[in-house]
Design a protein around this nucleic acid. Structure first.
Lengths: 325, 325
DNA sequence: GCGCGCCTTGCAAACGATTGCAGAGCTGCT
DNA sequence: AGCAGCTCTGCAATCGTTTGCAAGGCGCGC
């Protein structure tokens, strides 16, 4: 049932109906009441699509995770899911809906399509993956875009993220403090955030060599990689995993190989997902403060939507010492 | 940049541009190529809103969780989040976007607004909460609506869900088999799925009395409720929690009270969320098969969108025995 | 009695796409 | 030459709102 139908029934124009329903002051109290009552009675609900088209605003925010590197990584990834959960709560509280969008960057148009589709008022991206240049290009012409990820010097697009270099450094320092000497970085060093974690790790390791075990971030792939590595020769005595999920796969592979954690091998993860506190042994990890981070993302985005200025921000990572290292 | 602009540049009508971009056979190869090239060069991307309005289809599915009972329950709830993850993967694979929608049922219009907004081609609901009647009413006039929840005799709306009565029964049987006598059901018995779990539990308990500790499903509330109950008098020797999250809160309260699980009190949860395997002790629980469940939801919904018939379905629950009971 | 201003309401133009129908131009056949 | 038939393109309506502008009706003051 559309406004025009109601207008016909009420014997007025659709213009009047529209104004009555939106409480426009220029329509008389009596007509307003009459139309309101009629609308309730017949269950009239304006088509949002038409409304959005006319108003050029939608009340929706797009949320996407570019899966450039890890095609196999799914939305079921715990880190993404909890980020999503926090963001969803915050946005819903502010009256926005969330468009969870399809992103498989087969070409460099995906982000253009998203921002130009007219379906959303702003875009939130989780991770830059291998799409840094695309994001940079689009951000130059489209303001309401905020990314969870790394911030490089001279970067144009707004990011909120944890200090990955620092986080990597903290991990290395902690492991060295435990007297570990054969350090191994586990994960895909290609995505920017992981690259920074590795860089910070190497930096703080100083003279101590860092072995890199590069693999896809999918749990089975990580598990297989670690198992192969353990079969290949002298085990490391410390593993710094690029994510908690990777760390958990490592834990499993180590246990299966009969190695004790942290006795034989210390393991440290990244993210502090909810699960990390419950693995056995409980995972020592570098926490990303998602409560603060997601709040900043939403605030920054809303500021940009309102046409105000905003800046990137970095939330400090924190070492959470549990039992695995 | 809209089609009309491109049309002006190319010296043709917007009609031709539209047809060229959509590969309509009635526009000549040469014009098609020329317009395509021009479009690429100037980054023309059709406004989806206008397109959807005209076509009366959107390529998006709404996903919502009515929070009638548990106002405090957030989207960060692990069960909802993993359901969301599975659904998102499935829908995205089929080319649909997901509109994660604001649902706070302050009145009984929320679902009408969602289906009449024109923004989605179909609606997926997680849980019926206290909105059973509303859902029933809307389903009578709106076909593409599928709900995760309970199925009652004579129900009109399509549901996919696990057999909660059976699940409750399995829990009771297992606990009685362990020789437990003082059974306690923990959770809010109001939402239909929880009510059924309790009913099945009671039924299978037979002559053995079942105490009900009713509380909000928010973790802190559950924890407080269990603590108060333990302080109040003789502890139960078995707890059946309405969800894994509630079970985990119970675990914490029991440990704090110096009780051993499962020595003093056996604990059994519901859902088998990822976390359940990693609590200490690992949680015995009733698994809901989400892989099958979500696949059925999506298939059923797509069938309804296509105008075909479809029926409700029930996936069997399964007892996962770990260490807590 | 007339004109001014106020209160309501309606007309019609947006918003930006898609598509049925008609017509323009061309070829080819008789 | 004339006409049928085919290929391509454009006109204009349509989807369902919102809103600037203008106008109708009415009261009131002079």
């Amino acid at each position: 049932m559309k406004l025009a139908d109601l207008a016909a029934m009420a014997g007025v124009s659709t213009a009047t109906v529209s104004r009555a329903l939106s409480g426009h002051p220029s329509v008389s109290k009596t007509t307003q009441e009459r139309i309101r009552a009629l609308a309730r009675e017949h269950g009239v609900r304006p088509n949002q699509l038409a409304r959005n088209l006319r108003l050029r605003s939608t009340g929706a925010i797009a949320l996407a995770m570019p899966l450039g590197h890890a095609r196999t990584q799914h939305l079921t990834d715990p880190f993404f899911l909890s980020l999503l959960g926090f963001l969803a709560d915050l946005l819903v509280d502010r009256g926005y809906d969330i468009l969870l969008s399809r992103v498989l960057p087969e070409n460099d148009e995906w982000l253009d399509r998203l921002v130009d589709s007219g379906r959303v008022d702003g875009v939130l991206l989780v991770g830059q993956s291998d799409q840094y240049d695309t994001i940079e290009r689009v951000a130059a012409r489209y303001a309401p875009l905020v990314v969870w990820g790394v911030n490089r010097p001279g970067q144009r697009h707004l990011t909120i993220g944890s200090d990955n270099i620092r986080g990597g450094g903290i991990a290395a320092t902690h492991l060295l403090g435990l007297g570990r000497q054969r350090l191994l970085f586990l994960g895909d060093p290609a995505p920017p955030e992981f690259a920074e974690r590795l860089a910070g790790f190497r930096d703080a390791a100083g003279a101590t060599a860092v072995e890199v075990l590069s693999c896809e971030m999918d749990p089975d792939a990580v598990h297989a990689a670690v198992r192969a590595r353990l079969a290949a020769g002298t085990a490391p005595d410390a593993i710094f995993a690029a994510s908690d999920v990777a760390a958990m796969s490592a834990l499993r592979a180590l246990t299966e190989a009969g190695l004790d954690v942290p006795g034989d091998v210390a393991v440290i993860g990244y993210d502090d997902v909810t699960l990390a506190a419950h693995t056995s042994p409980p995972l020592t990890t570098i926490r990303q403060d998602l409560v603060t981070g997601t709040r900043l993302m939403v605030e920054t985005l809303l500021r940009r939507i309102a046409g105000e200025t905003a800046t990137s921000a970095i939330v400090p990572p924190e070492l959470i010492v549990r039992a695995s290292a």
